[in-house]
Design a protein around this nucleic acid. Structure first.
Lengths: 152, 152
DNA sequence: ATGAGTGCAAAGTGTTTGCACATAA
DNA sequence: TTATGTGCAAACACTTTGCACTCAT
């Protein structure tokens, strides 16, 4: 984990951005909540615990910055809220998500299931794929066991 | 096209919603701009040409209604604007999109390229897939020809 | 006749921005 | 030292809601 912090710091430094305590705390919170799909507000509140003087705007600016540096991805699951998802180290592609329409849980899928599909896109549609977003909506394991998918 | 209007009217009627002129005009605009990914504001302006007294709120309410009835899908391409996309008749799945990061164009893909992937999701992750969203980001045919992908 | 639907304006969201001050480099 | 970054509050853009009025059924 320290190694990842260092690497992100390095990325900031390389891009000539300053290493402020606000940015460091924000990154730390993101790492500690890796798979939580936090919103800016969520991040803000968690950062505030460790650094109470921080302002919401700074969090937004930091998240946008990290997005530019490809440290994280901005996701939108359909509610009007942007969520932020750290990229796995060296990942070229955004990972996939399984969203349960019953309980709202979000599961991540690391493996890239799309190379075959991307070949088709390239060939049939003449489109150079740089990245993708793939989300499945349905019923998660838990909800299947519990109630077969009846709405909560 | 008249047939599709009738069918949508029928869906409204079956769900006990009234067939107001505002709703009819809105549906008509959606059909006339089938592959345009209109925002609520876009729809509003086009509807206003045919029915100037309409209010923006009514358009929003109608779009939400049609979304509930699965007549259309609400999409979000990352800018903070909801766009609305008519479902093809009988389509169970949301269609895919190719978004050009150079010129911003959006191409639609009707064929469902994901059945194989969904089998894996079902088997390996125990997830019952009901629907999906798939978007590719990259360089479209046009931009490749023009400039090889340099930013506009 | 009457409850669903409408238009308007006002209120809510989540997010961005202008500015004076603070600080990492 | 000085440009970059920060906190705050005000501004924004999109969307939703309360209310009195209208109209499809």
């Amino acid at each position: 984990m320290e190694k990842r912090i260092e690497r992100i710091k390095e990325a900031l430094h390389d891009a000539r951005y300053k290493l402020t305590p606000q940015r460091e705390v924000t990154v730390r919170v993101l790492l500690e909540n890796e798979s939580s799909h936090l919103s800016a507000e969520d991040v803000f509140m968690k950062v505030k615990d460790k650094y109470p003087e921080i302002g919401l705007a700074t969090v937004y600016r930091t998240l946008e910055l990290l997005n530019e540096l490809n440290v994280l991805d901005k996701v939108n699951f359909g509610d009007g809220v942007a969520r932020y998802d750290l990229r796995k180290e060296g990942a070229k592609h955004f990972h996939h998500h399984l969203i349960c329409t019953n309980c709202g849980s979000v599961e991540e899928i690391e493996e890239d299931l799309l190379p075959e599909v991307e070949k088709i896109i390239a060939k049939d549609f003449n489109f150079i794929v740089v990245d993708h977003r793939l989300t499945f909506h349905g019923i998660c394991r838990n909800c299947q066991e519990k109630d077969g998918g009846t709405n909560a």
